[in-house]
């Protein structure tokens, strides 16, 4: 029996957290790639701090931070920070509408887009496209991109049949593969196999300044946070790497 006891004690010592400070960053999945890119060099420069990063969504990050289970919340939706939390904008991130090439649509008016997402337009032929049923691919409730679309187009939750996908990548894949599909994604990546739609003749790529659909990602952290948390929060909110991840900096949230 002694060997079992020794093994357990050894394992306990190996797994003990030690004296390193732990910081948890949690929130919007669309921001985790950016956060990881900032956290890695920051953690190398702060060897006594261990940083854990997890997605889960803006709400999960916000509530975890409020409950003291996370130190920094990454959000692509706005929450009221009150006096207990700091809020910093990370810039703005475009929300683009993408369509399957078989739809035969390259440009839509804003009102047509609203009617599409309300389920009033059922076939792309009604907008001058091919004879193809409209199929909507959307993000779940709680996604920043969905909130932007819902607010901009006045789309309610009780819409027509929609395929819900949990990530940008899954939306792109579903739109690529489904004839008649339309969806929306955050960021200005050149997604292969889909058409980035112009809205009212405006293309995001040609004139980003005129584009009307943007999410405004933010980070939150407690006012009474440790100096390490504050340092990491500043690194996240000020990093020049933001532009590499589709964030447009130097703008103020509405």
């Amino acid at each position: 029996m002694m060997w079992l006891l020794r093994t357990l004690v050894a394992a306990g010592l190996l797994l003990a957290p030690g004296s390193r400070q732990a910081i948890t960053v949690m929130g919007a999945t669309s921001l985790t790639a950016y956060a990881r890119a900032v956290i890695e060099p920051w953690a190398r420069a702060h060897a006594n701090v261990q940083v854990a990063l997890s997605g889960g969504g803006s709400y999960a990050g916000w509530y975890a931070m409020k409950a003291g289970q996370a130190d920094i919340a990454l959000c692509d939706l706005r929450f009221d920070p009150g006096t207990a939390f700091y809020e910093r904008g990370l810039g703005k991130m475009p929300v683009l509408f993408i369509a399957n090439p078989s739809d035969g649509i390259r440009n839509v008016s804003r009102s047509s887009l609203r009617r599409v997402f309300h389920g009033q337009i059922k076939n792309w032929r009604e907008l001058g496209g091919r004879n193809q049923l409209v199929r909507m691919v959307v993000r779940p409730v709680g996604s920043g991109a969905r909130a932007v679309v819902a607010q901009s187009l006045g789309v309610s939750a009780d819409g027509p049949a929609q395929v819900v996908q949990l990530s940008n990548g899954a939306v792109v894949r579903a739109v690529q593969e489904t004839p008649g599909a339309i969806g929306y994604v955050e960021g200005d990546h050149a997604w292969p196999g889909v058409i980035a739609l112009k809205v009212n003749g405006q293309s995001y790529q040609a004139k980003p300044g005129k584009w009307p659909f943007y999410a405004w990602p933010r980070i939150y952290w407690p006012v009474r946070a440790s100096s390490a948390v504050t340092s990491l929060a500043h690194a996240l909110s000020q990093s020049p790497r933001r532009s590499s991840f589709g964030l447009i900096t130097g703008v103020n949230p509405p």
Partner: peptide, 11 residues
């Protein structure tokens, strides 16, 4: 699974 993101513990 989907709504764990909008209804986390504490919400």
């Amino acid at each position: 699974l989907t709504d764990m993101a909008v209804l986390p513990v504490g919400s």
